[in-house]
């Protein structure tokens, strides 16, 4: 028996989302794959179903920034699946920002995909999990949300906003029996980080395995891999003037 019977993965077409969908279907979970790129999604759907030997994955092409369409799509998916135990918001974007670049339009797009989209999907899930008295919400945030770094002002801010939003959801629905897991991965080798030189990069598959383990164990805030927890504790403890000077 799979740990979760029915799951939604938003941002499933590549990277951590795709690896999560793969790990879930390998466990026998029925997964709704949500992403913007229909072609990539159907390829993944086909791949997952053929390796599972049964229809476990269904794809739904949808843009997370198109928030007006999300409630009805959410209802459609839960009907198709026959229920919902787990939702993972793994959609996100990290556009390259130049050191002296302040492009509001670009930033608005980052906010829409990383934060507003998460709110739109996870509000739907929180509302039903609160009624059901069960269910798990997983939000893929980032270590980048823990401090305001020079390199990615808005990417980091959307992840910080996501952290606070997830904490609020947790405080709302955990008392009803549902769970909210904030995942803060360090650098993961995905299309989003392609071409970037980052320390301690791990594969998307490893990240997915650790994320699901944290969700099963109901870890409230999970650093992936776990070594980022003490590292970020140190980084967070650095006084602001020193942090500015260090430019980590």
């Amino acid at each position: 028996m799979p740990h979760w019977k029915y799951a939604i993965v938003v941002g499933a077409s590549s990277g951590i989302g795709a690896a999560l969908a793969q790990a879930l279907t390998a466990d026998g979970t029925q997964v709704a794959l949500v992403a913007r790129r229909a072609d990539a999604l159907s390829l993944l759907e086909e791949k997952l179903n053929s390796s599972a030997g049964q229809v476990l994955a269904r794809s739904y092409s949808s843009d997370v920034t198109d928030i007006g369409t999300i409630p009805s799509l959410f209802a459609e998916i839960t009907q198709d699946l026959g229920g919902l135990d787990l939702i993972i918001y793994a959609a996100g974007t990290m556009p390259r920002i130049g050191p002296e670049e302040y492009d509001t339009e670009k930033d608005a797009g980052t906010i829409a995909a990383n934060f507003t989209g998460a709110v739109a999907w996870l509000n739907e899930a929180a509302s039903r999990f609160e009624k059901a008295g069960s269910g798990t919400i997983v939000g893929i945030s980032s270590v980048a949300g823990d401090r305001g770094r020079r390199g990615s002002p808005v990417y980091g801010a959307t992840k910080a906003a996501l952290n606070t939003y997830l904490e609020s959801l947790r405080n709302r629905i955990e008392r009803r029996g549902a769970f909210v897991v904030t995942v803060k991965p360090g650098p993961v080798d995905t299309p989003m980080t392609q071409g970037l030189k980052m320390p301690g990069m791990i594969s998307a598959e490893r990240a997915a395995a650790e994320i699901l383990l944290a969700a099963k164990d109901k870890v409230r805030v999970a650093y992936v891999p776990a070594k980022w927890k003490p590292i970020m504790a140190v980084i967070c403890a650095i006084p602001a003037p020193l942090f500015k000077w260090l430019n980590i």
Partner: peptide
């Protein structure tokens, strides 16, 4: 029919 369907969602 006045009551929206989403408000009818119950456990």
């Amino acid at each position: 029919n006045n009551k929206p369907a989403e408000q009818r969602l119950e456990k």
